[in-house]
Amino acid sequence: MSGLRVLVIIPAHDEQESLPATLDELRAVAPGLDLLVVDDGSRDGTAGVARARGVRVLRLPFNLGVGAALQTGFRWAVEHGYDAGVQFDADGQHDPATLEALLEPLRAGRCDVSIGSRYVQRSGYRAPAARRLGMVLFSGLVSAVLRVRITDTTSGFRAYARRVMEVCQHDFPRDFPDAPLLIALGRRGFRMEEVPVRMRARRAGRSFYTLGTSLYYPYKNLLASLMALLQRPAQP
C-alpha cells in the first residue's frame, strides 16, 4: 500500500510571494510526491515562479474560486492515474512535515478522505469569536449527520482517495469546499478521518475568505448543508 501515487494539488491565486518557499519546502520534505499548481486566474507571477521551479502548472483563464481550482486538479489527477490527491495551501499555512501523517489513513485503507484538523489537539490556533461560533455550529452539524467526529470542517489540508476525486471532478462546490461537501461525501458512503496537524501563519498574500464573504458564507453553507441532507444519497 506504500506505492500510492500521490499528487499534491496547490490552488494558488496571486501567491507569487509565498509560493516559492512553499514549493521549495515541499520538494525538500516530501521529495517522492508529485506537485501540481493550479493558478486560479492570478494577475501576478504565480505561474512563472512555479514553472521556474519545474513544477507543473495548470492556468485557469480567470478566477473561478478555490473549489473550482481544486476540481481542476482532481480531474488532472484522475486522468493521469493518481491514487490520491492532497489539497495543499500555497501560502505556507500547511506543514509539509505532516503530509505523511495525513496520508497514513489512506495508505492503511481506513478512510477515503483524510482531514488535517487544527482542533483535534491543541495547536495554538485561536480564531475570532464569530468564526469560532460558526466552526462549532458546522462541526456539530457535520458530526451529527455523519456520526463521525469532524472538528475542523473548514480545513484546506485534506487528502482524497482516487474514488473520491472521480466523483468530485464532476460535482464540487465552486467557492467553499467545506461542511456541505463533507456531508455530501459522507452521504455517498465515503469514510472520513481527522488527523491532528499544526497550522502556521500565512507567509504573504490574501486569504480566499474575505470580509465580503463573511456574511454570505454562513447562509450558503447552512443552506447547502441542509440541501445535501435532502438529496437522495447516490449509490457508491
Binding site: 454570505y216 447562509y219 450558503k220 443552506l223 447547502a224 440541501m227
Partner: peptide, 16 residues
Amino acid sequence: VLDLVRRRKLSEEYSL
C-alpha cells in the same frame, strides 16, 4: 426555490 437548490438547478448564490 428550495427544491431547485436541492436538485442543483439553482446555485445557493442566486437563491439568497
